[in-house]
Design a protein around this nucleic acid. Structure first.
Length: 705
DNA sequence: GTAGGGTTAG
């Protein structure tokens, strides 16, 4: 509510007005009460006033102007049936009545109803006026119907109303939103008068269409024409800067906003938070947030997103909790953005509590919330919950399907990923995107369905009209490499039409490690070092490849090289959540308060594992030690410590969930398989790449990761 | 009495 349009007749606070409103039989007072109901969005007051009007005025019919007020009220409050019924009993509805019905539908996200009402109005030989056309254009724009939009434009042209700025701005925005950019530009150039709304339409749509530079140019041109930007222009400009990562330009504008006092506007403040967040200037975003005089739910949500998208998930969650403390209701926006941080943290318990909050706030049917739930459960390794969340969604879109397929991909369940993919195609409601294909081809690769994966890659353009991107090429290299066709994968890379990326060579190196192809592995590693000389992961992979092949000299060389060039392996850590507390472990960590019990558990497990035939794989020991010392060292890896803690604390029957920030180590992988069988428990390890489900001496990845 | 351009998410 920036311009107070809906309040223009009220000189006192509307809630007070409601309190002192007394039923009064004259039509003027009744109309005022109806208008008030719209302003405070109270369907209760609206209905009560309608009933009072009928009672007071019966047996006389409602006067036309009061009837218009009522249609408008029902339509604006999104009670379309009541609005349409009232109009239908009117023997001669005027253009005002029709426009009230049309605008309400357009504003409440019912563009197709709005267009249907517009058509019905024309059939009833009622001519649209300068108020009708803007709503009709808005509906055509929202419904993405360029042809309908063009017809409305023609009609407004014939009636001469296109010269009205409101009408022209509606047409302008409609042409942009329906993709008829050329028509939009022509219209803009030919407009007899351009107001700020027209300029804003140019700018906001340029940003929406991913042309931020054009929005910035338009802003400069507006200033050169002596135009005064308003809050909407400034939000558009900030969005453009965020989209193009023009951090200094945006912060210059911030200075201008402070001078002109625009930064006091909530929307502009929110735009600034978002802008700084997208430029990764987290401190600046927080400073704007802290200094805001007025915060609304969007401000809080934007701040959550800033943290979530800049790798500070815990901080994001804290802001969400602070918002709750401040009395901010968990909105669909809020919940869906915080759910992504749970997915990132692997925070299943937090995610479940958000799910419960979503149900309590009746937003669990929202498509964003639903998709975020599917995504969160999938990423937290709870595929049954992901399936259930998907089933419960009242409607689904591309993102929902991608989230479910992604869940199966993370698990390595290629058959289910393909089944759901087929279902998605079969339902005919959504077309797959390039993300969908990355997911299914990756699933094929992880599940060993080499032929199916290659088939998908080769036919994706023809079947789905999707041009293969770099990600898809990397998938194919992975697919071939895992299946033992490293040479073919290398040939494939040579014929790629795009320059191979880190993930392409990384996939080849991974495959070479898996199958002991050291010569080719060295080539891949060389390419990787050229692209990113400082990456520790690739050096470790190369060293492990030599170690697995028993080529100790080369393995040591790579390690030494890393040391010489000053590459440090980031500290590996594993964490486990128990009773809402996150317990983090590093290798050889003895600082935990339950260290004694953890060590006792490890000693016991070691005896039991060795009795069952486990041999410690000391190649994963980092130091040059005696064999027995190496055995002790690998036993102290962070994932084993976290697991021992879980076995000490978490009662039998509850699956143990561990998250690791690096790839799970080979010896730990083998040990956890044994432990899952010995203690008879489900153990789920999420590493930086995928899930491992350990059960009964086996892992879901089939030792293929 | 009826109108146009906007901030946050999967």
């Amino acid at each position: 509510m920036t311009d107070g349009a809906s309040f223009r007749k009220l000189t006192f606070p509307p809630t007070d007005a409601y309190r002192h409103m007394l039923p009064s039989p004259d039509p003027e007072s009744l109309a005022a009460a109806v208008e008030l109901a719209v302003a405070i969005r109270s369907a209760r007051l609206g209905r009560a006033t309608h009933a009072a009007a009928v009672k007071y005025l019966s047996p006389r019919p409602l006067p036309a102007f009061l009837s218009n007020h009522l249609v408008n009220m029902y339509s604006k409050l999104d009670l379309p049936t009541a609005a349409a019924t009232l109009l239908s009993v009117d023997p001669d509805p005027s253009v005002v009545t029709w426009t009230a019905l049309i605008s309400g539908s357009a504003q409440n996200g019912r563009p197709l109803s709005a267009l249907a009402h517009f058509a019905a109005m024309l059939r009833a030989s009622v001519r649209p006026n300068d108020f009708t056309f803007p709503s009709a254009f808005k509906a055509a724009a929202a419904a993405r119907q360029p042809l309908v939009g063009r017809q409305i434009h023609a009609s407004s042209f014939k009636s001469g109303l296109i010269d009205d700025v409101f009408v022209a701005c509606g047409a302008l925005d409609m042409y942009f939103k329906t993709g008829l950019t050329f028509d939009a530009r022509t219209l803009f150039d030919e407009m007899p008068q351009r107001n700020i709304v027209a300029w804003n339409a140019v700018m906001t749509n340029a940003v929406l269409d991913g042309r931020p530079d054009e929005a910035i140019k338009a802003f400069i041109k507006l200033r050169l024409h002596g135009g005064i930007p308003n809050t909407i222009s400034l939000c558009a400009f900030l969005n453009a800067c965020a989209g193009a990562s023009y951090s200094s330009l945006g912060s210059q504008l911030h200075a201008f906003m402070i001078q002109s006092g625009f930064d006091l506007d909530v929307s502009v403040g929110n735009g600034l938070i978002d802008f700084y967040g997208k430029c990764h200037w987290v401190h600046e975003a927080r400073a704007v947030f802290d200094e805001m005089h007025m915060k609304n739910d969007v401000s809080w949500c934007s701040m959550v997103v800033v943290y979530a998208q800049n790798g500070a998930e815990e901080e994001a969650f804290r802001v969400y909790l602070d918002a709750r403390k401040e009395g901010i209701r968990p909105t669909d926006f809020n919940v869906s953005s915080v759910l992504t941080t749970c997915a990132g943290l692997s925070g299943l318990d937090l995610g479940r509590s958000l799910h419960a909050a979503a149900i309590r706030s009746c937003i669990n049917g929202n498509i964003f919330v639903g998709s975020a739930l599917v995504d969160m459960y999938g990423k937290c390794g709870s595929i049954r919950d992901a399936e259930r969340a998907f089933e419960e969604m009242p409607e689904r879109n591309l993102i929902s399907w991608n989230a479910l397929i992604g869940g199966y991909t993370q698990l390595g369940d290629a058959h289910m990923a393909l089944t759901v993919f087929d279902e998605m195609i079969g339902c005919g409601e959504v077309a797959p995107s390039y993300v969908t294909l990355v997911n299914v081809i990756t699933a094929c690769s992880r599940g060993g369905l080499t032929k199916e994966g290659l088939d998908l890659f080769e036919t994706m353009k023809e079947r789905f009209g999707i041009e293969p991107r770099l990600e898809h090429y990397a998938c194919v290299v992975d697919l071939l490499g895992r299946a033992g066709m490293e040479e073919r994968a290398y040939e494939f890379i040579k014929t790629m039409p795009v320059r191979p990326s880190i993930s392409v060579w990384g996939a080849l190196l991974g495959a070479c490690r898996l199958h002991g192809k050291t010569a080719l592995g060295r080539i891949a590693a060389q390419k990787l070092f050229e692209i990113d000389p400082q990456d520790s992961g690739n050096h470790v992979l190369l060293s492990n490849m030599f170690a697995s092949a028993g080529r100790w000299v080369e393995a040591t060389e790579v390690r030494k090289e890393m040391k010489d060039v000053g590459i440090k392996k980031g500290p590996g850590c594993s964490w486990i959540t128990w009773k809402n507390v996150v317990h983090v472990f590093q290798a050889k960590d003895t600082t935990h308060e339950m260290n004694d019990k953890i060590q006792a558990m490890l000693a016991k497990l070691r005896r039991q594992m060795q009795a069952a035939g486990y041999m410690p794989d000391t190649r994963y020991a980092l130091y040059d030690l005696e064999e027995e010392e190496k055995e002790t060292e690998v036993l102290q890896h962070s994932e084993k410590l976290a697991l021992a803690f879980g076995l000490v604390c978490i009662p039998p029957g509850i699956p143990i969930r561990i998250t690791k920030n690096l790839r799970v180590c080979g010896d730990c992988h083998c040990a956890i398989k044994f432990i899952s069988g010995i203690v008879g428990r489900e153990i789920i390890v999420r590493d930086n790449n995928r899930f491992h489900y350990f059960r009964d001496y086996q892992c879901s990845c089939r030792d293929y990761w």
